[in-house]
Design a protein around this nucleic acid. Structure first.
Length: 278
DNA sequence: CGATTTTGACCAGCGC
DNA sequence: GCGCTGGTCAAAATCG
């Protein structure tokens, strides 16, 4: 069950992918992953999530990796360190975030970005699972749905959203696990470079409501689960929607101060605020 | 009436 | 080359 769920999150090769970069500002800080055999098993879904890996493995009593110099504004992405070589493990490489030009004209969009010999650039992705009744969790940003596709072997469709902020190219995908319909898989792609919208609703999971002393409890819960394939019964509850202090609960893998937020540690590469670039 | 969602069509990448 | 699949577009429908 779980193996299927996270097939896309595996390193899609049989290489040892053992480094997780934690901080965009400080590349020297990183977490080290000790992948289990299950993670190194060849898998069939290689096209997704090969750039970012943000799940922690909790099937053993020992944390599978420890944080080293993690910063609050850490970004989690993933790369391979096998032999220090890139040639044979392209699916595991870490790539820096880039802003490509937008080419959305029908019929031209992919041709322009995919000239002869050039591979289409893929933004860094970050994926996580939440337990929720609703598919779309509030993260403080405004999203516009631009597509929905049926997922193979699943009765639940995958929805595609784009950040509504002008010039922001961040996307996210939301799909419900067909093995455990209570679980929602959310995948962020790209990085926000603008502030949170001022008119947005209070985020359910992400932190703007932390600015308020005692926010009312949301009616729906979003619990963030972080784990890797293995023991389904041993996942980590990393976040509860009624509190953003959950970050400390995440700490078996990420050492986050008590007052830090999920936004500060997990999807920060995608949610962190930087001066808006016009 | 503008913003958002729905949905069928289209396109590219990949495997066979 | 062909079929499958994932991702995106854009017109129409719906919403607020």
């Amino acid at each position: 069950m779980w193996d299927h769920e996270f097939r896309n999150f595996h390193c899609p090769t049989d290489h040892t992918c053992s480094r997780v970069s934690l901080s965009a500002a400080d590349p020297s800080s990183y977490m080290r992953l000790n992948f289990t055999d299950s993670l190194q098993s060849p898998i069939g879904y290689g096209r997704s999530f090969e750039k970012a890996l943000a799940f922690s493995h909790s099937s053993s009593s020992q944390p599978p990796f420890s944080s080293v110099g993690a910063t609050p504004n850490s970004c989690i992405s993933y790369s391979s360190t096998q032999d220090g070589s890139d040639k044979s493990n392209k699916d595991c490489q870490l790539k820096e975030l880039e802003d490509g030009s937008e080419s959305s004209k029908k019929g031209n969009r992919n041709k322009l970005a995919n000239k002869k010999g050039e591979k289409k650039h893929k933004e860094t992705r970050f994926a996580f699972m939440t337990k929720s009744e609703v598919d779309l969790l509030e993260d403080g940003y405004r999203w516009r749905k631009y597509g929905q596709k049926a997922v193979k072997n699943s009765p639940y469709p995958r929805s595609y959203y784009r950040c509504t902020t002008q010039k922001c190219r961040v996307k996210k995908r939301v799909e419900r696990s067909f093995q455990d319909p209570s679980m929602v898989i959310t995948t962020y792609e790209g990085q926000h470079k603008h502030p949170l919208p001022t008119t947005v609703k209070r985020p359910m999971l992400f932190p703007s409501f932390m600015l308020r002393p005692s926010p009312p409890l949301p009616r729906r819960r979003h619990e963030l689960f972080t784990r890797m394939p293995g023991d389904m019964n041993n996942y980590q509850v990393a976040a509860g929607a009624d509190s953003l202090m959950f970050a400390k609960n995440f700490s078996p893998f990420l050492q986050i101060p008590d007052n830090e937020l999920l936004q500060d540690m997990v999807p920060s590469a995608f949610l962190k605020h930087e001066p808006y670039e016009q």
